[in-house]
């Protein structure tokens, strides 16, 4: 299994045990999770630089188990180039944006540099989406930057948006639907596979923001073929990773 949407650290308004990278590796070993693609929770909160450094520490400690997203803040748009060059040279594999916590629109001008960079370097860019407006915005951005791979975080989150997401993503080949979410609606995986196939669906858990095991059980118990499960749980992420390492998609 490869978790393409994971985090690191603590969150400000609820409690959980652990959250450091050692506690994460421990549970990954227990459930057979090969690697997690992470951004630090403090990065999508008050300090993207500190969070990116925390991710770098995790990658250095467990290079085979963690891959890093460079998280960027729209409020420090003038620092994006420097941060991206630094972190990509350190081995980070993509970009993370969180328009929800940063209260900034996906199609806002302060994100444009991130999109251009991802497009130029053919990187994946994981964007938190919640609601119909976010879905429509990421689709439009993805159409404009076709060399970048857009990972639609949570696929819109609420059920109505998730149903819309698959319809809008069908003809936009550089958009992947991300299953990460706490609701884990019964039947949505089957619906997605039926509508778009399993090759553009990515497995993610938000872990340690939430526990990864229920999401795994959800995918493993879904009423789709074993081949489709493999694509979702690891094959698609592996293909993206291979493309990044080869320098092209």
């Amino acid at each position: 299994m490869i978790d393409s949407h994971a985090h690191l650290g603590k969150w400000f308004n609820f409690y959980y045990d652990g959250g450091d990278f050692l506690s994460m590796v421990k549970i990954m070993d227990r459930i057979g999770m090969e690697s997690a693609w992470i951004s630090a929770l403090i990065s999508i909160g008050p300090d993207y630089e500190l969070g990116n450094e925390m991710v770098f520490e995790a990658i250095k400690a467990f290079p085979d188990r963690f891959k890093g997203y460079v998280t960027l803040s729209p409020y420090f748009a003038d620092k994006m180039e420097e941060e991206l060059n630094k972190r990509i040279s350190q081995g980070f594999i993509g970009i993370k944006l969180h328009p929800g916590t940063h209260l900034y629109p996906i199609d806002g001008v302060n994100y444009l540099y991130a999109y251009k960079y991802a497009n130029e370097h053919r990187l994946p860019i994981l964007i938190h989406t919640w609601g119909e407006h976010d879905i429509r915005a990421i689709i439009e951005v993805a159409k404009s930057y076709q060399n970048a791979i857009f990972l639609m975080g949570h696929s819109g989150g609420d059920l109505r948006s998730m149903l819309l997401a698959v319809e809008l993503a069908r003809d936009v080949n550089n958009v992947y639907l991300d299953l990460t979410g706490s609701a884990m609606y019964n039947g949505i995986i089957e619906y997605y596979v039926d509508r778009i196939g399993s090759e553009r669906i990515l497995f993610g858990t938000d872990f340690p923001f939430i526990d990864p095991r229920p999401s795994i059980g959800w995918v493993k118990s879904s009423r789709i073929s074993e081949e489709d499960k493999l694509n979702i749980l690891q094959g698609n992420a592996r293909r993206i990773l291979k493309s990044i390492l080869a320098g092209h998609f």
């Binding site: 227990r30 459930i31 609606y185 019964n186 999401s215 959800w218």
Partner: peptide, 18 residues
């Protein structure tokens, strides 16, 4: 939480608990 959730979700959580 049937029919809203797949039982396999919570079952896996329990089965894989330490």
């Amino acid at each position: 939480n049937l029919p809203y959730k797949n039982p396999g979700s919570t079952i896996y959580y329990i089965e894989k608990a330490n």
